[in-house]
Design a protein around this nucleic acid. Structure first.
Lengths: 206, 206
DNA sequence: TAGATTGTTAATCGATTAACAATC
DNA sequence: TAGATTGTTAATCGATTAACAATC
C-alpha cells in the first residue's frame, strides 16, 4: 500500500471515504467492489480500482474489499490516525459553528481553542472549548505546538490574522473569509470562498 | 473569448479572480500581466496566459491586461452577471451565517429565504431574510423559481432535506453537512466536508 | 531598436481508459 | 467450470510546458 499516490487519486480518496461512510451499517459490515463504487459515484471502474489498489492490498477477485478495512485503509492515508490540534480565529456564527461541531475528532483533528478580539466573547466557553483574545494566539500556538488554523474573521481582518498565524508557527490555514490570503512560503493556505464554489457548481456544471 | 474552456481552466478562474480582487485599489486601476499573476500564485506563466486567453481577448504585448476588464471578463464566464435565488435549509450557526452574509450578491446570488423545522426559529427574520418552516420549501421554490440550495442541517437530516430539495425543483445543492448525499440524476450535489478538506490540506500538502 | 509581453504551434508529460491475464 | 472481480500492461487521451514568432 501507499505505492505511488498521485494528487488526482488523493483528491478522490475523500469522495470514496464519504461514500462508504454513507452506506447503511449492514452494508458496512460486508464487502464492496470497486465496480460498485464506480457505478454509485459515476466514475470509471478501472480508475476506482487503481485508486483503491494504491491505498489497500485487500482487494480479492470475485469478492472485492471488506468495507470496514477499506475505510480504515483510506483513513490511514488521509491521516485520520494522527492527532492534530486546531485553533479557530473569529467567533462569529461561522467560528462558533466550528467550536460546537464535534465531528472533527473522527478525522484526527481536535479543535482546542477559539480566538476573538471582542472582549464580550473572550473568556467564554463554547462546547467546552475556551475563547481567548487574539493577542494570545501566538503564545498559545507555540506552547501547545499547534500547526493548523481556521480563519472565520471578517474579510477586512483576515490577512492580518493570517500573518499572525504564520508568525505563530501555523503551517496550514483553512480560510473561510471571502478574500484571497497571501501567506509566506512554508505556509499552505486553502481559500474556501463559498460564493465562488457556488458559482462553479451552478454555472459550470450544468 | 469563451473559446474552449477546459474544466481545469475553469477551476483556476476563481483563483485568478480572487487574487485580482485582493490587489490594492491602486493596482486594480492599472494593468497586470499573466506573468505577474503566475508568479504570485506559483503557477506556470504559459498556463496562466492560456487560461486568460480563453476568457478575454484584452491581452496586449508589453502591457498585459487591464485589471478591471480582466476581472469583469472572468466574472462574466463565472456567471456573476446572472441573478439566481438561493435558499438555505437549517438555521443553526452555519445557516444563520449564510443569511447574515451579504457578499453573495457580488457573485450573482441572492439568498432569498432560510428554512428550519424548529418553531422557535420559524417566522423570524435574519438580516432582512425570512425564515420559514421546512414544509414550505417545495411551494416556495416552485413559486419563486429557485434552483440553488444550501444545506446546513444536522447530518441525520441532510439526506431527507436533499430529497425534498430535488423534489422542489432545486438542481444545484451545496452540502455542508458532513455526510455524502445521493441525489437523483439531474441534481448536482457538491459535498463540502470540512474535516476532509482539512485532512487534504494538512496531511497531503506538506 | 531592444525588451517585455502576448498568443500559437509542437513536444512532453501524466492521467485515464482499454485490453487482458490472474484468481477466487 | 463459468462468472465476477482483481491488478497490470499497453494505448489513448488531454493537459502542461517548451519553443518561437508576432506585437507594442
Amino acid at each position: 500500500m501507499d505505492k505511488n499516490i498521485t494528487s488526482q487519486t488523493l483528491s478522490r480518496l475523500p469522495v470514496y471515504f464519504s461514500y462508504l461512510a454513507s452506506l447503511s451499517d449492514d452494508r458496512k459490515k460486508g464487502n464492496i467492489s470497486a465496480t460498485a463504487i464506480a457505478e454509485a459515484l459515476g466514475l470509471n471502474d478501472v480508475q476506482v480500482r487503481k485508486d483503491l489498489a494504491s491505498v489497500s492490498s485487500g482487494g480479492r477477485p470475485k469478492v472485492g474489499y471488506i468495507t470496514a478495512e477499506l475505510m480504515s485503509d483510506i483513513g490511514r492515508v488521509l491521516g485520520f490516525d494522527n492527532r492534530d490540534g486546531v485553533v479557530v480565529a473569529g467567533m462569529g456564527n461561522f467560528g462558533r459553528a466550528m467550536l460546537e461541531y464535534n465531528g472533527f475528532q473522527a478525522y484526527g483533528f481536535d479543535i482546542v481553542c477559539g480566538f476573538d478580539c471582542n472582549s464580550d466573547r473572550v473568556g467564554s466557553n463554547i462546547n467546552g472549548r475556551p475563547v481567548r483574545h487574539i493577542d494570545e494566539l501566538e503564545s498559545f500556538c507555540r506552547e501547545n505546538d499547534i500547526h493548523i488554523g481556521i480563519i472565520t474573521v471578517p474579510e477586512g481582518a483576515a490577512q492580518e490574522v493570517c500573518d499572525r498565524m504564520a508568525e505563530a508557527g501555523i503551517r496550514f490555514i483553512l480560510n473561510f473569509a471571502a478574500v484571497h490570503l497571501n501567506a509566506p512560503k512554508g505556509v499552505a493556505v486553502h481559500n474556501e470562498n463559498i460564493s465562488l464554489t457556488l458559482a462553479m457548481l451552478a454555472r459550470c456544471t450544468g
